[in-house]
């Protein structure tokens, strides 16, 4: 077995070319044992390519990737025993029940001692053990996929877009399962194009766009480092306030009965509130927010993280 380090995954100058197209361009990062690491980026950014190279099922064009100290291009059969994978768009045998599917994967790993019932309970599928895969809803299928990824008690768990295509309720249920894994101290490598998912689950986020990693750090660090403004929102505000704020040199935006103002520092907020009060205008409530990862991403890349946000909210 290779030399063990404090890192579960070490990626150095990884590149991957499909024909003439560079899908992954000189990416480097390290994932510490026990942390939840998220690769955040829009469709086609190179997330699946990267994660599948680490999982040993695609070959890098150049660069070095080590998993638990082992070279992923040389130690496939040692590595696969120690990792658990939920592939993108996970699917399983239609006519095989939840329990049988778990038993099948458990046998592939030769883990006869796996407590299948415990895993099934972990993903909240206990009352579905006798159901055939084809009868499960999308969220249940993903949860079964997560249970399968845990069947060999892996040291590193890979989840490639675990909640894509799920409705908000099913997504939150998957998040609950993943928060449980995080609590257990599993090393989790997650890819997603949902900012909230990365923000909620990840200790470290790497933002990837067009094959390149453009920023890395904890969600807070990323926001601190890239957000040079605060967002003030005033609810049910007197229309006169818009004028008052504009006169102070800010550029307020009206959104229904709310006013949004970007300010550089907290001091500006105090000034604005005072000016409104002095002007005799009133408002019902206010809040101040840092921009979220979505806005950080937009700022860094000039591209939107995902186009489906509107549609999904519409479906809510």
């Amino acid at each position: 077995m290779g030399n063990e380090t404090e890192y579960a995954i070490e990626v150095e100058h990884l590149s991957k070319r499909y024909g003439g197209d560079l899908a992954v361009n000189n990416i480097s990062f390290k994932v510490r044992k026990g942390e939840v690491f998220a690769l955040l980026g829009p469709n086609g950014a190179g997330k699946t390519t990267t994660v599948e190279i680490i999982e040993t099922i695609r070959r890098p064009t150049s660069g070095k990737v080590r998993l638990l100290g082992m070279d992923v291009t040389r130690k496939k059969y040692d590595i696969v025993r120690r990792i658990g994978v939920l592939p993108q768009g996970f699917s399983s045998f239609d006519r095989i029940t939840v329990r049988e599917t778990m038993e099948y994967y458990s046998r592939l790993f030769g883990h006869s001692h796996t407590d299948i019932d415990e895993l099934i309970a972990l993903v909240n599928l206990t009352d579905k053990t006798g159901e055939q895969y084809t009868t499960l809803s999308g969220g249940l299928k993903q949860r079964l996929g997560i249970a399968i990824a845990l069947v060999n008690d892996p040291e590193v768990v890979f989840l490639d877009e675990p909640t894509t295509g799920l409705d908000p309720r099913a997504r939150r249920q998957v998040w609950d399962v993943l928060l449980g894994l995080k609590k257990k101290g599993k090393t989790v490598f997650l890819t997603t194009h949902y900012m909230e998912e990365a923000e909620l689950l990840a200790d470290t986020v790497a933002i990837i766009s067009k094959g390149s990693a453009i920023a890395m750090g904890s969600p807070d660090q990323l926001i601190e480092g890239n957000a040079d403004y605060l967002l003030l929102t005033l609810q049910s505000v007197d229309p006169r306030a818009l004028e008052i704020i504009a006169q102070m040199g800010f550029t307020p935006e009206q959104d229904n009965r709310a006013i949004l103002v970007r300010v550089a520092q907290t001091d500006d907020i105090r000034k604005i509130l005072n000016a409104i009060e002095d002007g005799g205008a009133s408002f019902l409530s206010m809040d101040v927010r840092k921009p979220n990862l979505e806005q950080v991403f937009l700022k860094l890349t000039g591209e939107a993280l995902h186009q489906d946000t509107v549609g999904e909210q519409g479906a809510q």
């Binding site: 059969y77 025993r81 990792i83 996970f90 592939l108 790993f109 030769g110």
Partner: peptide
């Protein structure tokens, strides 16, 4: 097509 082969490629089979 269902990606099951890809999943199996990440197991010892």
């Amino acid at each position: 097509q269902k990606g099951i082969i890809r999943k199996l490629a990440t197991t010892p089979i």
